[in-house]
């Protein structure tokens, strides 16, 4: 699974770090039929988590109500230099990972 993560690379201590991520995934609802009338089984990224410096800071539990190619934006407080690491898994157990380095000044 490919993903694109965008994070401010340099930030002052205490300021918000804006994290934006888009993951390529169909987020199959389970309500779609193919041309032969067969139902496409539901398969969504149901669990997403973000760690900053090894500590979990944000987690999402998602269903078919989240659009295909899920996009998330959230704000983490800059405390120290470290990695922002995102991990996710879909219902067929396919998982993905994306990370970005943040340098905290001051």
């Amino acid at each position: 699974m490919t993903a694109r993560i965008e994070v401010q690379h340099e930030v002052r201590r205490g300021d918000p770090i804006e994290v934006r991520i888009v993951i390529q995934h169909p987020m199959e609802t389970g309500f779609r039929y193919d041309s032969l009338g067969r139902q496409t089984p539901r398969n969504v990224i149901h669990r997403f988590e973000c760690r900053y410096g090894g500590v979990e800071v944000f987690r999402a539990s998602m269903g078919a109500g989240i659009a295909a190619n899920p996009y998330l934006k959230f704000f983490v407080r800059a405390e120290r230099s470290g990695d922002i690491e995102c991990r996710w898994v879909d219902q067929e157990n396919a998982s993905g990972y994306a990370s970005a380095r943040v340098t905290v000044n001051g």
Binding site: A60, I66, A67, P70, Y71, F75, V76, R77
Partner: peptide, 27 residues
């Protein structure tokens, strides 16, 4: 009105600087 009412749950905490989440939903 969605077939599954619960669209998503976001778990936040004190390490986040703002209680704000942006995404795209299906309706």
């Amino acid at each position: 009105k969605n077939p599954v009412a619960l669209m998503a749950t976001f778990f936040l905490g004190p390490h986040m600087s703002r209680a704000e989440v942006e995404s795209r939903v299906r309706l």
